[in-house]
Amino acid sequence: MLLVGLGNPGAQYAATRHNIGFAVIDRLADELGVAVTTPEAGSLVARAVWEGVPVLLVKPQQFMNRSGGPLAELLAEYDLAPEAGLVIYDDLALPVGALRLRPKGGAGGHNGIKSIIQSLGSTEFPRLRVGVGDTFAPGTQVDFVLSPFPEDEREAARDAVALACEAALVFARDGMTTAMNQYNRRG
């Protein structure tokens, strides 16, 4: 089971809204007692086992809009179908703190997901969207997603990361339907 967090590599992006997928993977790594430091197929990975389920934590090391290549390489390397990976990423259409799990779907304007769809040739992969809000002025979307959460949203963002970790592990162990039933909610 691949748990894939999307983000941009580099310290300057670490605390930004766009990197909430990386934040989820980092928190999962802490909880599972591993470090996501092994280079593999254009990503940093860590292997772990949670409640008998082997998981591969993945942080693609291409910029967000090129995330598809590393994911496609890993799926091929492990001879896995796209359904074997949960992609975790930021979503402007959801308020800060909200989660949405879906078994498949379109890109919804997200460039990282567009890249994955193009690289896999499929929209048939599970995803976990983590709400980062949409309180930006017209024309400032890029600056918004590449900025950190303001003080008044940080607690909700931390809570969302913790909840997304739980949701990802439930997905890995029990499948999409169970995870959706437990975690799809408004923030």
Rank of each mutant, 00 (worst) to 15 (best):
A72I: 14
P103M: 01
I117P: 03
Y89D: 02
L71C: 03
I116A: 05
E77Q: 13
P95E: 09
A76N: 14
L86C: 12
R102G: 02
P95I: 00
P82W: 05
G106R: 09
E73M: 11
I113Q: 06
H110K: 03
D79C: 14
K104F: 01
S119M: 11
P103S: 12
A98G: 14
P82F: 03
L94H: 12
K104D: 00
L94M: 08
L99W: 08
A76R: 09
G112V: 09
K114R: 15
K114D: 09
L86I: 09
A107K: 10
I88C: 09
E73Q: 12
I88A: 04
E83I: 04
N111I: 05
K104L: 01
G109K: 07
L92P: 00
P103D: 15
G106I: 00
V87M: 05
A72S: 15
A84Q: 12
S119I: 13
D79S: 11
G105T: 00
A93M: 05
E83L: 07
G112M: 08
L75Y: 04
D79F: 07
A76S: 14
V96P: 15
I117D: 07
L80Q: 09
L74G: 13
G106E: 00
A98R: 12
A72Q: 12
A76L: 08
R102H: 03
G112A: 06
E83D: 10
G109E: 06
I117H: 06
N111D: 12
L71T: 00
G85Q: 10
G105L: 00
G105E: 02
A107R: 09
L74S: 08
